[in-house]
């Protein structure tokens, strides 16, 4: 039996990114849920490789934007230049007009530049010189962010973080995966020779399908309980927003789809919850984002209905 597109994609990706199946499934869920992904990690763990690999495997038009402190909004969205021949301004689209964008080290740019990208992510269109241009479909932004402790960074404000559906960390590979990585061919070379396993249309169909997955009413109740738990405990500055709740449902649907089900189970919600919640929540005490253990405790404290 030919594998379903979502599984084909996951399998092919885990051939390239070794030992990170869970993170890959999260990244794919984010993609299928039409969300954007924030990857926060130290350099060199394969953030760029992941973006490359996904673009290649789906056959998406890929653009990488390296964020620096002198990057300007126009460098992202494009610029209108006067054309002598026609005596008109002509818009030169920036790198944001691509299907998969890797915004590398997004927290190195100034807030103004950051917000240009983030607005494009939210609106899925660019307005320049009074005309509006839609961004291509599918449109998926993977932003990487160095841990905020590093110097020379402009941390993304909370409101901007909310634009990312998920935040994941890749982390170091385990010993055997790392050994395979070290002994194998260069990842870049593998990616270049990797044919696409699904088409962009397949991805759109997957996104469509994910939206139609059944969610029992009880799971809506459960999601509400989870949201309420983040709001009531007094542990966090503010809780999760309704938008986060919608994101949680969308991500859980996508996760369930990859699992091969036509309905969502509580486990799907629990798997994606930490990655939806962590970057949106701030601890009341020190203003830091909660860690995985803390979120696991939160999940344990909310009984299933």
């Amino acid at each position: 039996m030919p594998q379903r597109p979502a599984n084909r994609l996951l399998e092919a990706a885990s051939q390239i990114i070794l030992g990170k199946t869970h993170e890959l499934q999260l990244a794919l869920s984010c993609l299928i849920a039409r969300g954007h992904l924030l990857i926060e990690d130290v350099p060199g763990v394969g953030k760029t490789t992941l973006a490359h690999a996904l673009a290649r495997l789906i056959g998406l038009h890929f653009q990488r934007i390296q964020f620096t402190s002198d990057l300007l909004p126009a460098d992202i969205v494009g610029v209108s230049i006067f054309d002598r021949d026609t005596s008109h301004f002509r818009f030169h689209p920036g790198p944001v007009f691509a299907q998969l964008i890797l915004a590398d080290e997004v927290n190195r740019a100034t807030p103004k530049t950051q917000s240009a990208l983030l607005e494009a992510m939210e609106e899925r269109q660019i307005t320049a010189d009074g005309s509006t241009m839609p961004l291509p479909e599918p449109f998926f932004v993977m932003a990487t962010q160095n841990p905020s402790s590093q110097i020379g960074t402009f941390p993304l404000p909370e409101s901007q973080l909310d634009r990312f559906l998920m935040r994941i960390q890749l982390g170091y590979p385990d010993r055997s995966a790392e050994r395979a990585l070290l002994m194998g061919k260069a990842r870049r070379e593998i990616i270049e020779h990797q044919p696409p396993v699904i088409t962009p249309d397949d991805l759109l169909a997957l996104q469509e399908e994910a939206q139609s997955l059944l969610i029992a009413e009880r799971l809506i109740d459960y999601v509400q309980d989870l949201l309420a738990a983040t709001r009531q405990a007094g542990e966090y500055l503010g809780g999760l927003s309704p938008r986060a709740g919608l994101g949680l449902l969308a991500a859980a649907r996508a996760w369930a789809l990859i699992e091969g089900r036509d309905h969502v189970l509580p486990e799907d919600i629990q798997r994606v919850f930490p990655h939806i919640a962590a970057h949106r929540l701030q601890r009341a005490g020190d203003g830091r984002h909660p860690g995985p253990a803390e979120l696991a405790r939160l999940l344990q404290s909310v009984p299933l209905r």
Binding site: L265, P266, E267, Q270, Q300, S301, P303, L304
Partner: peptide
């Protein structure tokens, strides 16, 4: 079963 434990888990 733990109260927050899903059926598959």
């Amino acid at each position: 079963r733990h109260p927050a434990e899903g059926p598959l888990d």
